[in-house]
Design a protein around this nucleic acid. Sequence first.
DNA 1: GTGAAAGCGCTAACAT
DNA 2: ATGTTAGCGCTTTCAC
Lengths: 333, 333
Amino acid sequence: LQLEDLAERLGYSKTLISMVLNGKGNHYGISKKTQAIVLDAVTKLDYAPNKFAKALRTGKSYFVGLIVTDIANMFYAQIAKSIEATLFENGYGLMVFSSNDDDEKEKLLVEMMINQQGVDGLIVVSALKVPSFYQQKRFEKTPIIFIDRILPLHKTNYVVIDNYGGSMEIVNHLITHNFTQISCFCLTPMDLSAFEDRLNGYKAALLKNGLNVEEAFIKRINFSDCDCDIELSLTALMEANKKLDALFILDSRIATSVLKNLKKKEFSDYFSDVKIACFDDIELFTVINRPIISNIQPTQEMGKISAQLLLDIINESQRSKSTVVLSTKLIDR
Amino acid sequence: LQLEDLAERLGYSKTLISMVLNGKGNHYGISKKTQAIVLDAVTKLDYAPNKFAKALRTGKSYFVGLIVTDIANMFYAQIAKSIEATLFENGYGLMVFSSNDDDEKEKLLVEMMINQQGVDGLIVVSALKVPSFYQQKRFEKTPIIFIDRILPLHKTNYVVIDNYGGSMEIVNHLITHNFTQISCFCLTPMDLSAFEDRLNGYKAALLKNGLNVEEAFIKRINFSDCDCDIELSLTALMEANKKLDALFILDSRIATSVLKNLKKKEFSDYFSDVKIACFDDIELFTVINRPIISNIQPTQEMGKISAQLLLDIINESQRSKSTVVLSTKLIDR
DNA sequence: GTGAAAGCGCTAACAT
DNA sequence: ATGTTAGCGCTTTCAC
């Protein structure tokens, strides 16, 4: 069923119907009565304008693209959900892709979305280490919001977590509760702003409290060798001459693996009285016996704010770049 | 940059370029040399055809819609990831929406996707209890694959888990290991095929082994009152005259809440030697101290198969309805 | 108040 | 082996 059919049945022109459907009836002085007739027929006949024709004509797709590292990661899934809900309320659809933190796939996706799929805007968790790709002129017309991570040297729109502050808050909290020998498990490679900021927050908290940053206490875990690296690190900590009293883990997936490893008998004793803290709160922490300190990342807010910001830019079509930093919430069990 | 510009620069017609770009160069007998020139220029100039114009002309969007209950639920997030990957390999994009198991929203989404957004196909986890909505003629042209749940009386394409068999396998396994007083925590309302099948699998396993189905052992948990219902149920089981020796939970989110509740001192003793089993395997079970029996649902396979099936239907444009039932994998820790 | 007609950028049937 | 042309279904300027 198309506009032309409708026009014939009703005895009006395509123009008139189109105007009414786009809410411009009053603007063009179409009588209330006519408008009512048109709208009524549209509902009755279940007419819906062809999306492609409309998009071709207007240049707007009412679609937004989202690129995340991994949509099966709870953190991103929650953000995606919130973005989707916000967009839906505003008549926009969401298309989602996982980049797996692969630079090339990310670029491919961005190109695909902008060139071929014609999204009106993009929200991306970028894995890139240099901003040049996004600075190309051909991307200028499509607004992009970067979330979760900051691209060095790139002044644009960001919605991120206060990784530095959140990390510092946890470590500070530990120190306040008399934990002073705090080991930190971070990731390697450390090329993502989020993890770098968290590590810096850890260091800053130590220094602020007059403690030393001990390199031996900083353990770097490679994600692909996660279990192996953790085992090695735990062993090293056990054999070190200084006993740790707390363990601060920068990522909840690493924390999960650590907890799994701590069940092994070679570790369980030694670490039984070590306080565990983790950046990011997951449900596991509420179920497990050991009380864990963590912080909640406001994923819902992050999704909502980034989507709203993007919609604002799309609609006002002009706006200054803004960076929104969201605070975490400390949880001590 | 558009086709016309390209045509001018190269001195060829739009037609020729279009043909080459769509891989029909050989079919139309365009010389290798010319084709090479065109393809080269396209890469160099970063030309990409306007998606809307193409879609308008061809009637194909190269987009597939996915409706799940909740994209922030790990089970669906994993499926979504797998679907996305499969589609991406085939040049298709994915748009995702969460229905929150709201019938009206689901219908709205389907209508929106098909009428307005022009998806080439749909994959849906349906919350509907009657199939009439999907049987409307106006949806006939768009292929739909239903996943995870079966719509009663609706013969169409399904990719589902063997909920009945998987459930039966777990209960059977329990019985084989001398657990005979098995309580079952199921959900209410029980209007979704997946949960009904799981409950039936539980009952069938008992009967097959000559055991009675005791209504007092079947506890119904309402999701919105989850913690409260669980507390009530656990209390009831404690006060019953028959002591249970195993607890089979039909959903991992309920299981998580149960495990949380079992930490309470009023329950911990009584249930400490009760074997816990759960339909669906989540990472929590590998971290927690209590060894839990569960089964893995092949989410990746489910996503891959449903996406592939949909693509097959889209491309061959004709095909008989098929139902794929995927088996779960038992895990005993 | 309402309608005719041009054209968004592409594809494919039909020339040549 | 390559070009001409007629739309796909909609929006919007301009004319009545």
